[in-house]
C-alpha cells in the first residue's frame, strides 16, 4: 500500500488534488491551536518574576526559531529524497519551504531583537543563538537566490536540494563554532539569557504555539506546492482542462 501511495504522490495531478483537500484541514487546525496558544500565552500565563510582561514575546520568538530549524531539516531531507529517487514532488516541497523558512527565521530575529531591547538594553546582541539564527537566514537567502537565478526549474530544484544538504551538514558545525566563539567573547555586562525554568502555565502555550506553527507550515507549504505545480505543469493537458473548467 505504501509503495502505491508514494507512486501516486509522485504524479503532480494527484499531489495537486490531495494537497487541495489537505490545506483547509491544516488551516483550520492551525487557527484553533493559534487562538488557544495566544489566549493562554497573553491572558492566562502569569507575568515572569524577572522580566514582567515582556517575556510574552517568547510565544512568537521561540516557536519561530524552532520552525526555522525544523523547516531547514525538512528541506534537506526532501532534497535528499528528490536527489536519490528523483521524485518531482519532493523537489517542489524543497523550494516551497524555502520562503516560509526564511520568513520564520526573519521573524525569530526580529522578535529576538524586540525582546532583547527591554532585557539587554540594545536591539542586537551577538548572543550565540541570535548569531546562528542570522547565519541560518543567510543560508535560506542563498537557497532562494540560487533557485531564482537558474531559469530551468528542474535544474534549479536539484541544485537547491544539494545546497540544502550541504547547508544541513554545516549547521551543527556553524552552531558549535558560534557557541565556542560566544563563550570566548562573553561580554561581562550582558547577563547570559537562559530560558526561565518554566512552570506548566507558561509551557503549555509555548508548546501549543509550536504545534500551531507546524500546522501553519503544513498548510503554506502545500499551498505553495500547488502554485509551483500549476506553473511547472502549465502545458500539460490536465492543467489546461482544469483552467477551462474554472473558466466556464
Amino acid at each position: 500500500m505504501i509503495i502505491r501511495f508514494f507512486h501516486q504522490m509522485g504524479s503532480p495531478r494527484y499531489f495537486y488534488n490531495v494537497a487541495g483537500k489537505l490545506v483547509p484541514w491544516f488551516m483550520v487546525s492551525f487557527l484553533i491551536t493559534l487562538v488557544f496558544g495566544l489566549y493562554h500565552g497573553l491572558f492566562v500565563a502569569p507575568p515572569d518574576y524577572q522580566q514582567g510582561e515582556s517575556y510574552r514575546i517568547m510565544y512568537i520568538h521561540v516557536p519561530s526559531a524552532w520552525m526555522s530549524m525544523f523547516i531547514y531539516v525538512v528541506m534537506a531531507v526532501s532534497g535528499l529524497i528528490s536527489l536519490v529517487w528523483r521524485i518531482k514532488m519532493t523537489e517542489i516541497v524543497v523550494i516551497s519551504s524555502a520562503t516560509v523558512g526564511a520568513s520564520f527565521t526573519f521573524l525569530a530575529l526580529a522578535t529576538g531583537s524586540l525582546w532583547g531591547k527591554p532585557m539587554w538594553g540594545t536591539w542586537w546582541v551577538w548572543d550565540a543563538r541570535l548569531t546562528s539564527e542570522l547565519i541560518l537566514l543567510f543560508l535560506y537567502l542563498g537557497i532562494i537566490a540560487l533557485h531564482s537565478a537558474i531559469e530551468d526549474k528542474r535544474v534549479a530544484a536539484r541544485a537547491v536540494s544539494i545546497l540544502a544538504l550541504v547547508g544541513v551538514v554545516n549547521i551543527p558545525i556553524i552552531h558549535y563554532s558560534v557557541e565556542w566563539w560566544n563563550t570566548l567573547h562573553q561580554p561581562a555586562s550582558v547577563t547570559k539569557f537562559d530560558k526561565p525554568s518554566m512552570d506548566m502555565s507558561m509551557l503549555i502555550p509555548l508548546l501549543t504555539m509550536a504545534i500551531s506553527f507546524k500546522l501553519y507550515y503544513g498548510a503554506v507549504v502545500l499551498m505553495r506546492a500547488r502554485a509551483e505545480i500549476v506553473e511547472r505543469e502549465r502545458n500539460s493537458r490536465w492543467v489546461q482542462e482544469m483552467v477551462e473548467q474554472e473558466a466556464k
Binding site: 507575568p47 514582567g52 510582561e53 515582556s54 510574552r56 514575546i57 512568537i60 520568538h61 519561530s64 520568513s103 520564520f104 526573519f106 521573524l107 526580529a110 522578535t111 524586540l114 525582546w115 531591547k117 527591554p118 501553519y216
Partner: peptide, 19 residues
Amino acid sequence: MGGYAVYVWPSFILAFIVL
C-alpha cells in the same frame, strides 16, 4: 503590557503580517 507594550505588540503585529 507592564510598560513593555512598545516591544510586545510590535512583535505580535509583525508575526501576524509575516504569517
